[in-house]
Design a protein around this nucleic acid. Sequence first.
DNA 1: CCGCATCCTTTAGGATACTG
DNA 2: CAGTATCCTAAAGGATGCGG
Lengths: 116, 116
Amino acid sequence: MSGFRNDTGGELVECRHGDQQVELPYRVGDKWTAHVLRALQHGRRRFTEVRAEMPGVTAKVLTETLRAMERDGTVTRTEYDENPPRVEYELTGQGHKLLGLLDLCCDWARENLVET
Amino acid sequence: MSGFRNDTGGELVECRHGDQQVELPYRVGDKWTAHVLRALQHGRRRFTEVRAEMPGVTAKVLTETLRAMERDGTVTRTEYDENPPRVEYELTGQGHKLLGLLDLCCDWARENLVET
DNA sequence: CCGCATCCTTTAGGATACTG
DNA sequence: CAGTATCCTAAAGGATGCGG
């Protein structure tokens, strides 16, 4: 169906908007997805560079996250046939829009997460 | 710190917006939270009514979700001392704002989740 | 009716070691 | 450098039964 539904049967969240009913990729809630969006917000980066901006993530989990986002259509993956190997990731148009949506969430948070 | 951080040490997601750095409640990614927001969008509902709009959820999990949202400040819980018992839930101001944010996510989804 | 207690399954995520 | 391959743990979520 949509470019966002992954082919491994990833979970989706139904969401109603007026009469429309859409599905959001549950993956946005994945632990590292938001961090990847931020790491790539200023352009193309290679694996190590992305990882450097995300303290605490292991190679395995970061790889899984990036592959999932690639399937979702939020990043592209470019592999160069060099030695030592080089792989670069970049946000797609959708990825940038998703990042913008995340910024809205930050706006919301700053307005509502007032000190108690 | 904030009214959104629960007192049981729930996980948060850091998020950068410009220079600001905020934290979002990871709980928004909980499986049923979005459904609860929709179920309560038109006003106060009792436990059974909420559950009826969420096929597949068990009482235990729904209770957990609602209690967590109560701690977060997105819903209020009103218990009536009747028999049989009656409990009603309602969105708070923050809850409505969060629902509005979810609507933005739906807008984004409808714009971007084009058929492939 | 509402929801707690108990037990169980699934899975995201992490630790570690190894490879082209 | 950019990953696999294993193994493991914690925690979310589900099934079922009981109780005020």
